[in-house]
């Protein structure tokens, strides 16, 4: 069983978001970088659990990023990946990123490719779906449970108001969300081992971007909360009906 886990570097969830260069560039000043939580807590940890049940399994990690992505990929290795591939480029275009990963995936002949459901910076939820288009593989998105049995997988995915279980034959791509696994913290042994695990740096393939970021904006500040006395809920109902037209 060969697993490929896609890892993205994102700002910590508590980061203050600001922009520079005339609002065209994300201000990285003082930003603490983390592994995208969906990639780490759900995709990577589920892969590690699979390997714990099947020691013959191998886990490769892939990230598209420049040298500053190495601390987070080392952390992912400390959690339990076997080796990592860093594609040496930075891009905000999902198609460019997915194309780089697809090139690695084709070469590695993986049985299962796992992604987080989306990244917490661009929230595009594109990579898993694009990989399925680029590689012509079955894709289950927003999965919260997965059991492997030989070359088949039984996966639960979220649907409106519930969930459905589906079965598919590997190779396949699954995007992971809450429920898939539980967050882990790397232990000292893992951190030491990660230092010597292979981290291969490859140069990107040539791909034309399909989108470009024109500008960023911060949302307008809320005009301020209107407080209603706790013994006057009728006033709140009136405001919600007449002013906010909320129901």
């Amino acid at each position: 069983m060969k697993l490929l886990v896609c890892i993205s570097k994102t700002p910590d969830t508590t980061s203050k978001i600001a922009f520079t260069e005339g609002n065209t560039k994300f201000d990285e000043n003082g930003v603490q970088w983390i592994i995208n939580p969906y990639d780490e807590w759900y995709a990577l940890v589920r892969a590690i659990e699979i390997k714990e049940q099947d020691p013959a399994a191998t886990i490769h990690l892939v990230t598209v990023g420049e040298a500053d992505a190495e601390p987070i990929i080392r952390k992912a290795l400390a959690l339990g990946g076997d080796e990592a591939i860093r594609i040496n480029m930075q891009s905000n275009d999902s198609f460019v990123v997915a194309s780089q990963i697809a090139a690695i995936a084709k070469e590695g002949a993986y049985d299962l490719i796992l992604t987080g459901k989306e990244t917490i910076d661009y929230n595009s939820a594109c990579i898993g779906s694009m990989l399925s288009g680029l590689l012509d593989l079955p894709f289950v998105s927003l999965a919260n449970h997965m059991v492997l049995n030989g070359n088949t997988a039984s996966v639960k995915r979220e649907i409106e108001g519930g969930e459905e279980t589906c079965e598919l034959t590997l190779p396949a791509i699954v995007s992971c969300q809450k429920g898939m696994a539980e967050q882990r913290i790397p232990n000292m042994r893992g951190i030491m081992a990660a230092r010597t695990k292979p981290l291969k740096v490859v140069e990107p393939i040539a791909v034309q971007a399909t989108t470009s970021i024109k500008t960023y904006d911060l949302p307008p500040a809320k005009s301020g909360v209107k407080l209603v006395a706790s013994d006057n809920v009728d006033e709140l109902v009136r405001l919600l009906k007449e002013e906010a037209k909320a129901f």
């Binding site: 595009s124 779906s129 288009g133 989108t211």
Partner: peptide, 22 residues
């Protein structure tokens, strides 16, 4: 929505189209 997230990016790739989600 849940299904749109699953297929819109893949369809974009097949059509050589750029996509913005959300």
């Amino acid at each position: 929505n849940l299904n749109g997230k699953a297929i819109a990016p893949a369809v974009a790739v097949k059509l050589n189209a750029g996509i913005v989600t959300g």
